[in-house]
Design a protein around this nucleic acid. Sequence first.
DNA 1: TAACCTTGCTGCAACGTTGTACCAGTAAAT
DNA 2: ATTTACTGGTACAACGTTGCAGCAAGGTTA
Lengths: 380, 380
Amino acid sequence: MARSGHPAVNPYTRIVPIRLNQPEKLDVSGVTIYQVAREAGVSPSTVSNFLNGRPGRMLPQTRTRVADAIDRLGYRPNRAARQLRTGRIQVVGLVVPSVANPFWGNFARYLERAALADGYHVLLCNSEREPDRERRYLEELWADGIRGVVLCSSLPSLNHVLPLVEAGLSLVAFDRTAQAGDPGTLVNISVDNVVGAHLATAHLLELGHRRIAFVSGSLRSVNRRERFRGFTDALEQAGLDPAEAIVWSGGAEQEPYGDLDAAGLGRTAAHELLQSDYRPTAIVAINDMCALGISAGIRDAGLRVGEDVSVVGFDDIVLADLAAPPLTTVRQPIGDMAAAAFRHLLSRIDEAEASPSQSLLLRPELVVRASTGPAPEPRE
Amino acid sequence: MARSGHPAVNPYTRIVPIRLNQPEKLDVSGVTIYQVAREAGVSPSTVSNFLNGRPGRMLPQTRTRVADAIDRLGYRPNRAARQLRTGRIQVVGLVVPSVANPFWGNFARYLERAALADGYHVLLCNSEREPDRERRYLEELWADGIRGVVLCSSLPSLNHVLPLVEAGLSLVAFDRTAQAGDPGTLVNISVDNVVGAHLATAHLLELGHRRIAFVSGSLRSVNRRERFRGFTDALEQAGLDPAEAIVWSGGAEQEPYGDLDAAGLGRTAAHELLQSDYRPTAIVAINDMCALGISAGIRDAGLRVGEDVSVVGFDDIVLADLAAPPLTTVRQPIGDMAAAAFRHLLSRIDEAEASPSQSLLLRPELVVRASTGPAPEPRE
DNA sequence: TAACCTTGCTGCAACGTTGTACCAGTAAAT
DNA sequence: ATTTACTGGTACAACGTTGCAGCAAGGTTA
């Protein structure tokens, strides 16, 4: 501090003894790598080597001395300093449509579990499925030094985040399969939506249903398109003409993805479908929230779910088992998917060379409950 | 770099041209405060003053020059460097029992919204209501430099986190009212549980119900105790003897808080209560998940919710309106509470002197839907 | 005119960590 | 005896930001 002896006192300035803006910085834990070094009788570099570089670079006795000192002092590395120095940070981002949706909340919990096991934290962001919010969030995360993000988007195009990916952001897209225009380094992780919807539809066909409807919001998102394909594939395989399938794809154009309103959407769909001449005996819903809405709509019409009209959902949220009647649905292996997402993210961040784009599809599982039953006798 | 001319070459070592461990640090955005300073023709200190200290400390023209330079270069301050220097960080923690519960997911979303408006991020943690996880999370957050946390705990005692609070951690306890042993600087934010349960119970009494049950898991958590008090208060006020109230307080001792299983708990409770001789005509549930489970249990018994047995929930989660029949419930002003929580947190972090402990109780609102109806005629 | 104050800016050291470059000391190869 | 290699460490300069201390220039007061 006083490098050249006492600091020269400016004869023109009075002493100002009160420091209003003192840093008042609360020490993160008070103890730094220097104190550990002194305690262990080594240099800070050696402690750093112990912590990061090879611990093989020192004698066993030195190693234990350092370890003991760290223990004794309760030393914890200062993350800010580490990040400043290395540019790395032990945090990944998670962008979901909305944690208010139990499916995403659940996914967040599993991802956190996976991340925590590797000493990573998860920074959570709600995009509300708005591309602009997605972009701003990713920019924010990037500026924070975060280099890996799990993006739950479902949007067909990722153009809005392309610049960041090109700058080096590692992106794992969840609930979305690869598209033609995707960046070359993208990893996609998703349930096999085609198989899932196929399972659901085949289940209904086996029960004897022939007039089956598919209900969703706009079909613009990737997974919805795929689920629809699984639906038509199954019909075709059963010898039905998919062109004659009943498709209810509502929702205003201006708000085509509404997650929260999926239930309301389903209810409306049920009302309309059950009033029509060609009334379906079974309905495949785009997800569980939608299916719960459909169930409510069926009841509104004075019909019984699982008897007059069967309903299949998708996701298997906790509430599916709780509904009246419990919902038959397609279960996503959400824990496995979260773990895989984090594992891929980590390998992307660590490796200098980004491996080429790839997709991981996990097989879903049909959970049969009481919302589906044999097709009622045709009464025509 | 080459401060003293060419670095002396060690005659004993061959040149090792391959640097395996190069830092490869991706620049956060490439542009630093130095480049902004050069672009604006001022010193880095002036740019820093513009960013933090008073911008009144410079001429208007200087101010605009700096602002322009920042714009032109797209400068964003490096948070790690800032944190290292100041010890501050623009992140608050949020510890919830589990985001898999829609109520907490929703709360997280609102808190994020409030935080984002002030440039703060939210780091989310799932405690699963385990005191030990709570403690470890808070320690982790503290080590990360985070000085403010919203803790959604409901545990009567906060002893397990006391050391951190004493070290300077600002804590806002959510969904929990003040307790005798609380730290002196704690802020409690909660809905008025007594009033809420009172509203729910009074509503049932007005409908003519007299045999009303209260269903919850263990009563050890703070808010559950209070809701129970609101329940008994209302009974008393109606001239009934609370000692004769039907109280179902189940759940194994070893897992007394199960959030995910609240629904299963409710279902079991309904089964047991409806089999008893003194069967209730109405049930007050500890929360909506529990109420949905109770509804399922009532249906299991072949009875109609809202006609044979009325059910009131608590929280007003999205699914309450979706159930069959839609759930009458007590709505928590969750957005207001989240905003208040963040506001208090911020003032605690900013102010050097922590103001004394206080509690904020927000008034809940009864939302009447179809799960409650007039008490059935006594058929005895 | 001397003494002091105010304004508007800059210089500099630090925050805690890391990894490269270096270096003694010893062992092995020439 | 000399060269080379390996081992087990240390010294030091960054990373980007901040805010105190300082300092010219001009203004105000005595």
